[in-house]
């Protein structure tokens, strides 16, 4: 038995692949921005003096990190529509990504914050900095510099996991692939192309994160050593 590869059969669909890849990237961009914001707020919440806030943030993090992403997607997607809230599919897919990655981000950021020695905070207090200033300049900035590789790794994983949103027909790369293979009857070739595209997206994302890191962490750029 020899399989005859025929990638030519996929050529008419190149536009669909491109659109799918762009949708995946756009979803990822939104999810990174909002997921990071939620993660940071949640990490701060878990360190706050309020037991209620601590528990609330802890509950969210544990709930998300201990249930499958696909169940979260169905829960949010069908849950929202059953209470009468109908979001566009793209928005719903991004929402599930944000909720999911926010919890993982929170744990990574919290781990980074835990590495900040209390003496650092005392020095900042002694200098007269306010609590929000201390959080930004003395806790968050070095914490993010420390966990940046773990954080961006998580975001790449999330980009790959966004393929699961094809289950609610978000028109991203995997959904496109599913369509293309059903029209072209070239399933093997289709998924090879999609795998290569995901690989390219992942490499692109890693490069972008690396460049951004060099931009926002001048110490790392100049010394090249871990903080």
């Amino acid at each position: 038995m020899r399989y005859q590869f025929d990638f030519g059969a996929l050529l008419p669909y190149w536009r669909d692949f491109l659109d799918g890849a762009l949708t995946t990237l756009t979803m990822t961009a939104f999810a990174v921005v909002f997921g990071l914001a939620i993660g940071i707020l949640c990490a701060i919440g878990r360190r706050s003096a309020s037991p209620l806030l601590q528990r609330l943030c802890g509950f969210y993090v544990e709930l998300i990190r201990n249930t499958p992403y696909i169940i979260q997607i169905f829960f949010i997607f069908f849950g929202l529509s059953s209470i009468g809230l109908r979001l566009p599919i793209f928005a719903a897919a991004v929402l599930t990504l944000v909720v999911n990655v926010g919890a993982y981000t929170a744990e990574i950021v919290r781990a980074g914050m835990d590495t900040i020695h209390p003496g650092q905070i005392e020095a900042a207090q002694a200098l007269g900095l306010s609590q929000p200033q201390i959080y930004w300049d003395v806790i968050l900035r070095p914490a993010l510099e420390r966990v940046y590789p773990a954080l961006t790794g998580q975001f790449v994983l999330m980009m790959l996991a966004s393929s699961i949103t094809s289950q609610i027909s978000a028109e991203e790369l995997t959904a496109v692939a599913n369509n293309v293979q059903s029209f072209s009857f070239r399933a093997f070739e289709t998924y090879i192309v999609v795998a290569v595209l995901y690989l390219a997206l992942a490499v692109l994302l890693k490069l972008a994160f690396y460049g951004f890191g060099q931009l926002i962490f001048p110490r790392r750029r100049r010394l090249g050593t871990p903080l």
Binding site: G119, Q120, A123, A124, A126, L127, G128, P142, R219
Partner: peptide, 27 residues
Amino acid sequence: VGMVFQSYNLFPHLTVAENITLAPRRV
């Protein structure tokens, strides 16, 4: 009132200049 600590507590992610100017700029 200023304070100096046993373990220096300089901010490791900032240059000497940034360590010194942080409080004047922020406060």
